[in-house]
């Protein structure tokens, strides 16, 4: 008798979420098996890889990164075009760092206007990330959602403190998608999804940002949380966990010791930029294996490596 591979079937599947507009839109999720389990069923779309840009000059970024972008980094619009043409990422993540009350504290109007210019300048879908100050993000996203109406962006992120306003303005009024951010806990992730849902936001308009950590910094917690979320969504058909996952990997990996210590400070560790890329790549590779449908990266080299890895896993 011929050998027959046994197949693990699940009752649930991950929602397919489209963002961006028209023919350039991209889809997240859609799978009904664990990540890369091509032998079990439909793995949905490929993991999407986005590159991070800022609304201000990236002064704190490594020299090597600044050199890649050169003058383009002085203006987010040119920067976005440059990234799109040169590295063709699946999407671009514009991080509105300039609106941070502890930094330049730009007004929501100013930040939103820039976001609009960026969105108009590029074809790939846009993810707009806030300042991680919950109060400011509330106002920021309300404005961003308004001026970007029609662009169908992902607002990264709404948390328990501000989900109502961001959900109401971002999704219900201006039809964008919202990332629901929780801090590495399956229950908290689920609770926020339920809250958004109770507000009237459809599950199909939610993407989860379930939290992240650089590898070596409690990452096991991240991996097991994603794992459990995926198993609950697929195995138990838990509707309130069937959203795709987006993970802003670069937000964490570029601020840990391995990426921050200069060669002078840690000569035995070798090149700083290579270390930064290594941290970014290993974290990103791990989250896509654990269930993330999209990752946000900073170094174009990291993006290329992660893309190759994902393609290799899928095509074999």
């Amino acid at each position: 008798m011929a050998f027959k591979t046994s197949v693990q079937k699940y009752t649930g599947s991950i929602n397919k979420l489209e963002f961006g507009s028209g023919e350039n839109s991209k889809a997240l999720g859609g799978e009904n098996v664990l990540p890369f389990y091509t032998f079990d069923g439909n793995i949905g779309g490929k993991p999407l890889i986005g590159l991070e840009i800022l609304d201000v000059y990236p002064e704190k970024w490594l020299d090597e990164l600044q050199q890649i972008y050169g003058d383009a980094a002085n203006n987010a619009v040119q920067w976005a075009r440059f990234v799109e043409e040169k590295f063709s990422p699946d999407f671009i993540c514009l991080r509105l760092e300039g609106a941070d009350p502890n930094g330049l504290n730009k007004s929501p109007e100013e930040a939103a206007a820039l976001a609009k210019e960026v969105a108009q300048a590029i074809k790939v879908p846009l993810v707009v990330a806030g300042t991680q100050n919950h109060d400011k993000d509330t106002k920021l996203f309300e404005k961003v959602a308004e001026v970007l109406e029609g662009c169908n962006v992902i607002l990264l992120s709404a948390v328990e403190d501000n989900y109502k306003k961001i959900g109401a303005a971002g999704v219900l009024a201006y039809r964008h998608k919202v990332a629901a951010e929780s801090s590495v806990d399956i229950n908290l992730a689920k609770q926020l999804n339920i809250l958004l849902n109770q507000l009237g936001v459809k599950n199909e308009d939610i993407v989860m940002n379930v939290g992240c950590a650089a590898v070596g910094y409690g990452f096991e917690y991240v991996a097991s949380t994603m794992d459990r979320i995926r198993l609950a969504a697929l195995g138990q058909n838990d509707k309130s966990l069937q959203m795709p996952i987006i993970t802003p990997v670069s937000f964490d990996t570029w601020s840990v010791k391995e990426s921050v210590a200069s060669v002078e400070d840690a000569p035995e560790w070798g090149s700083q930029v290579e270390r930064g890329i290594a941290m970014e790549v290993s974290t990103a590779a791990s989250v896509i294996a654990a269930g993330a449908n999209a990752v946000i990266l900073r170094h174009p080299g990291s993006a290329e490596t992660v893309r190759k890895l994902a393609d290799a896993l899928i095509n074999n």
Binding site: D185, I186, N187, L188, K190, Q191, I194
Partner: peptide, 15 residues
């Protein structure tokens, strides 16, 4: 801990 976090919701995370 997992039970506790899921119970800190009205009525419960697992409805």
């Amino acid at each position: 801990m997992n039970e506790f976090v899921s119970a800190c919701f009205l009525p419960h995370t697992d409805v």
